[in-house]
Simulated assay, not measured.
Amino acid sequence: MSTHSPVTAPADSAAPAPVSAPAPSVHVHSVHVPSVHVRAVITWLAIFPLVAIGLTILGPLTESWHPALRALVLTLVVVPTAVYLAVPKLLAGYGSLKRRQARKAAAKA
């Protein structure tokens, strides 16, 4: 069992003061985050057509496959397509719609 004593600087040595960089100026934009319900609907709007199209295309090709293998192949295509393409496009469209609505409401006020 070893004991270590803490290392301390001698009293007469001056420790350098910590250097802190100036805080960067940050422009905060009001970002509207959709509710979990809106995100669920947007995700469904992305997933449903992709699954329907995928089943239509893969159905005849994978008729004899085990259902788990068909689901695996389908999700290997649908999930990345939805996550990287469809959902971001739908969220951008939703954001654009909300901004347009906010501008119209501000113009009326």
Rank of each mutant, 00 (worst) to 15 (best):
L61K: 08
S13P: 02
V51S: 03
H27R: 10
Y84I: 02
A52S: 11
P34C: 11
L85Y: 04
P60D: 14
W44M: 07
L45G: 01
T56M: 09
R39F: 02
W44Y: 09
A82Y: 00
V77M: 08
V31D: 08
H66P: 03
G54A: 06
L55N: 15
A105Y: 08
Y94C: 00
V36R: 14
V26M: 09
A17L: 11
S35M: 06
A17R: 15
A71K: 01
A23F: 04
V36A: 15
A106Y: 08
K108R: 15
R103W: 11
P49N: 05
A105E: 12
V7G: 03
H27C: 04
H66V: 07
A14N: 09
V51R: 04
A17E: 12
S30E: 14
G95A: 12
A23H: 05
S30Q: 12
S13K: 13
T62S: 10
K89E: 04
V38L: 09
I57F: 11
A102P: 02
P80Q: 02
S5C: 03
A109Q: 09
A102I: 10
L97A: 08
Y94R: 01
H66I: 10
L74N: 01
I53T: 10
V78W: 00
R99L: 07
I47P: 01
K104W: 12
S5I: 09
K89N: 04
A46H: 01
L85C: 01
V19A: 07
H32K: 14
L58R: 04
R100D: 07
Y94M: 00
A17P: 01
T3P: 00
A23G: 03
T3W: 11
A52P: 02
T43D: 06
